[in-house]
Amino acid sequence: MIEQALANPWIRQLANAALLLAVINLGVLVLIYMERKVAGFIQSRLGPVHVGPRGWLQSVADALKLILKEDIIPAPADRFLFVLAPFFVFVPVLAVFLVLPFNAGWVAHDFSLAALYVIAAGTVAIMGIVMAGWGTNNKYSLLGGLRSAAQLVSYEIPVVLAILAVVFYAQSMSLVDIAEAQRGFGWFIFHPPLLVAAFVYMIGQLAETNRTPFDLPEAESELVSGFHTEYSGIRFAMFFLAEFANTFFAAALAVVLFFGGWDGLPGLTGALWLVAKSYVLVFVLMWIRWTLPRVRVDQLLGFAWKVLVPIGLIVVLWAAASVVYAGGAKP
């Protein structure tokens, strides 16, 4: 019966999507708990301890609280944009997970332009943030939205360049092919041009996910949370969820692109390796977040255009040259 139903491609895709959604939401709850604990230990305090054993259920309690809260739309807000904005941020983040391979064959939908799709879908979220900033009709949010647009557009480019370098090596845009190309510890991170690309990618993603030192759109101490100042309850939860899902995706994509995807020591299933490696990268992102101060907007954009983009271009040329003349990863 179930197999019959799954034979229908529509139902199959829906089931995949539902499974993915459950995995993402669970993963985000774990991430939030992890963020709090990591922040706690970095700041020489305990983090959540009261709800559930060792505070495990704190994230669940918070999620419930956010869902049950009154839904407030400020009177001067542009209702249409205000309501729509969280979806514009949330949906693309879920959509990119569709092409993420968790293991050999464990991918919701693989196609040959997956890398391009990831970049394109991710860009839609910028629209949501600008909509939130404008639709709220709050000057702090407007500044946050504008900062965000400038920042995300700028840092998209180095990220694309870094992915491009990987695509040269893998000779494919499919994430499955890219991961397959690194099997048996042939991880792309071991190739010098891609090592540099990995750094460019991680710094770019740090900015793309709005995390310190690049959290200017939210800038608690300047803009009072920027574009989502006026959001509360479930709408805020969507921004929050999207931010963490995005962080996890950025790390998981880095693992697929540079750290061999599901490749690991035999004995454990590949998906576990992928998730474990992703969490290590997420930990690095958190570590950076809780250690560094925030940069200023001109420094932020200057760094993207004057440092990261030139390095990205050089990496692309370098990667292309080493693929053509030195054979790259493949014979």
């Binding site: 970095i42 700041q43 020489s44 959290d215 608690e220 560094l292 101060p293 925030r294």
Partner: peptide
């Protein structure tokens, strides 16, 4: 001052 500049951890260290 650290918090003003986004370095939230400094607050906890100083308060310790």
């Amino acid at each position: 001052f650290g918090t003003d500049l986004g370095a939230t951890t400094m607050l906890l260290y100083a308060f310790r």
